[in-house]
Design a protein around this nucleic acid. Structure first.
Lengths: 160, 160
DNA sequence: TATTGTTATACTCTATAACTATA
DNA sequence: TATAGTTATAGAGTATAACAATA
């Protein structure tokens, strides 16, 4: 349609856009992948703005170390859905920032238990309060039942 | 816990991992962001394996051009949630592969309408059948009602 | 001045693979 | 031989910004 609402028979001689809602989204309209992509994009943009310079994966890692003092890198990798190399790079960065410390386990010197530093613990508390603001904005779009249901749906997809 | 099921008072002298299901997931357990991340990872891995060398975004782009002959790059960018630069790079690649062609609109020579080539149309048909196999694997985890509900939930998040 | 498209560049995220040290 | 961790590299995906052509 052009601006006056009539069909344009020849697009190549009419630079009006097809109206956005006149676009045929084809498979995209019912694609789980694409709907997920869109939801992720919005969620992520909001979370990034809320956490500032801290990446979401760093927040997740801090939360896990905070809740599981002595956790190993390989366990972090598993829980965060990362490979060992990516987990190692992250941990190295967090150690340079002095947010995380490690102690080699004497019983098996290959293993390093990870712990939050005092600074790391303080940072985590701050990030959690920021995360709560982010979470609240999206929780408010769902009833408690809907939210539980959505989480269950997502976990059903993630289950291998 | 160690292998015998007793608590280890001193982790630093015990290299047993905390059992995976004994990990405290803290906020990750109820985090929409993390659940979404996990679901996306599984969906995406499956889709990549099914589409072979073709990236999901390329499939989405082909589907849109196929369903909307003459569509503009900026419209593609909007629909695919990309910026114009990324859309331009994609379109350029697809033109080099001879899957997509363009015609400059004489009424406004800034605009290029995009169309599938014969090869592109054939490729799209193949990719759609591959995509269906992927889709079927995940649809089977949901009743039709649940699937509709999940899509609606995701769109509710994506709505700005 | 606004819009379409182009190009170069850079950053995030993650994977792969080769490596060391320890068991 | 297997496991924990390290490091270098590469690729996908996307954003930013400066640019040209057209309106």
């Amino acid at each position: 349609m052009d601006a006056s609402g009539t069909m344009s028979a020849d697009l190549s001689s009419d630079c009006e856009r097809l109206a956005a809602d006149a676009l045929d989204t084809d498979i995209l309209g019912t694609s789980l992948d694409f709907a997920m992509h869109g939801a992720m994009a919005v969620l992520r943009r909001d979370l990034l703005a809320q956490l500032g310079a801290v990446r979401p994966v760093v927040f997740n890692l801090l939360a896990l170390v905070g809740a599981n003092p002595g956790i190993l890198q390989t366990q972090l990798a598993d829980a965060l859905l990362l490979d060992r190399g990516s987990a190692a790079s992250l941990v190295k960065k967090l150690q340079q920032w002095r947010w995380v410390e490690h102690r080699v386990r004497e019983a098996d010197r290959r293993c390093k238990g990870l712990y939050l530093s005092v600074t790391g613990a303080r940072t985590l508390r701050h990030l959690k309060s920021q995360f709560q603001k982010h979470t609240a904005r999206f929780h408010s779009r769902f009833t408690p039942d809907e939210h539980r249901q959505l989480l269950e749906f997502l976990q059903r997809i993630a289950r291998q």
